[in-house]
Design a protein around this nucleic acid. Structure first.
Lengths: 244, 244
DNA sequence: TTGGATCAATGGTCCAACCAATTGCATGAC
DNA sequence: GTCATGCAATTGGTTGGACCATTGATCCAA
């Protein structure tokens, strides 16, 4: 038991020290997402470490999505950084078959219902305007192309997750979205995929705007149900085609 | 629209290429977690890239928790790696323990309610027996130590997630559990933490055994509510202590 | 057998140079 | 004056080689 109280001493931890110093720097300079941080060469010189070490440290931050590196222009902050951040790698095993897609949908149903409800309780007028704007953009795209546009659809949902006041929802649903789309161009060959879900985007927005958490949750569940139905329809069509 | 069909060509993507090659290697050699992978120098030589590039690639994997590097010994696989896996870091802005804990709890509420409901619909007699066994073990531990035992409690919940028929739930909640416990030894100094949740473990089990999905969901929500209440109670006590 | 010294293997760091993409400025054609 | 062209500086990406620090195995002596 007592070993737990004796963590090994850290004689060297160069890159961690670099990141710590950099996090302090970001906070002291109150850098915002989008701002440019110092050159690798400058950091190396200032911190008295080799540029290589700086690069390894920045590679870690890049992997965490905190920073974006653009060759020729510089390294830019991509998310808010504070000295006491907690990072936790998430590893999800998935396949590209029907069952795996349904599993991502089940998780999405759980998360989205809760996120939408929290959003209805917490969102402020500013975030609400953003959500409405994304909704309208999506509706315009829908009518122009006579079908759901995944890009605008995704941005609408993202705006909601972001307004839920809990950043974990956005990150987790992004993971589900990634898994879902990794194997999905036009999902399993279904035409008009997502067509049935169109209507519920507006009803979700209206319930959120009305601060009706349970109503919003109910509409979100209906939306997911239409996606599930689309998926099942596609699977049925595939099975039929295979038998012929 | 047509730009979408013309993604920029990748003239260089060295470290990504390295990771891809390495993932293929791991799969072909069927390396398991704990196995040692080739030396950085060997990888650099075989892949015809500089050792520095290999290091940047491995740094990314290390950040995702896929790999562990031990100076003097080597680099070891820490988690299963396959091309079908999704690796994504979760970031929780720290600085405020209470808020962070509540955020993990909100996610847990969403996931657990759904998992319990699915479990009630899908679990077979064998998994049900396992759940009951875990429940009884937990109850014994509770009476012996006059308090909740996190270990047995966690195993009970894990058995439920595993019986939900969707492995994503177990993986996600494990991540939440891990985050929760990083903050939390005895959470914020609350005594008898989780005491109020004890009763609901059995009611959840009973609803699952009765195949009552919505009933099980309701009991799970009550359980989470007690944990939230404990957390708020601890936070209130801390605030009060700070003012004195 | 045990204890310590030695040494090879391996990840960690450093350096100096060059490559590749981007940006901005200057020059020049119209 | 305006716009295009092209050069040059900036900046991240890569390379090769060297050395440091830690680990683990091997060997030797007490």
């Amino acid at each position: 038991m007592s070993q737990v109280r004796l963590p090994p001493i850290q004689t060297t931890a160069r890159d961690d020290a670099v990141l710590e110093a950099l996090a302090d720097f970001v906070q002291q300079e109150t850098l915002q997402p989008g701002d440019k941080l110092p050159t690798e060469r400058i950091l190396a010189e200032r911190l008295k470490v080799s540029r290589n070490t700086v690069r390894e440290a920045l590679t870690r931050w890049e992997g965490l999505g905190l920073v974006e590196r653009l060759q020729g222009s510089g390294t830019f902050l991509k998310a808010a950084v504070s000295p006491h951040m907690l990072h936790m790698p998430l590893t999800l095993a998935g396949g590209n078959d029907f069952a795996s897609l349904m599993q991502t949908l089940e998780v999405r149903r759980a998360l989205e219902a809760e996120a939408v409800a929290l959003c209805a309780l917490r969102t402020g007028p500013q975030e609400l305007n953003l959500i409405r704007h994304k909704l309208e953009t999506m509706e315009v795209a829908f009518h122009r192309h006579a079908g759901m546009s995944s890009e605008e659809d995704w941005e609408f949902h993202q705006a909601i997750y972001r307004a839920s006041g809990n950043p974990l929802f956005e990150q987790l649903i992004a993971a589900m979205h990634e898994m879902f789309h990794r194997f999905w161009e036009h999902p399993l060959g279904v035409r008009d995929f997502g067509h049935a879900s169109f209507h519920y985007h507006r009803t979700i927005y209206e319930r959120i705007a009305a601060r009706d958490a349970e109503g919003a949750r109910a509409e979100a569940l209906k939306l997911i149900a239409t996606v599930e139905a689309d998926l099942r329809r596609g699977e049925a069509a595939r099975n039929q085609a295979r038998q012929v």
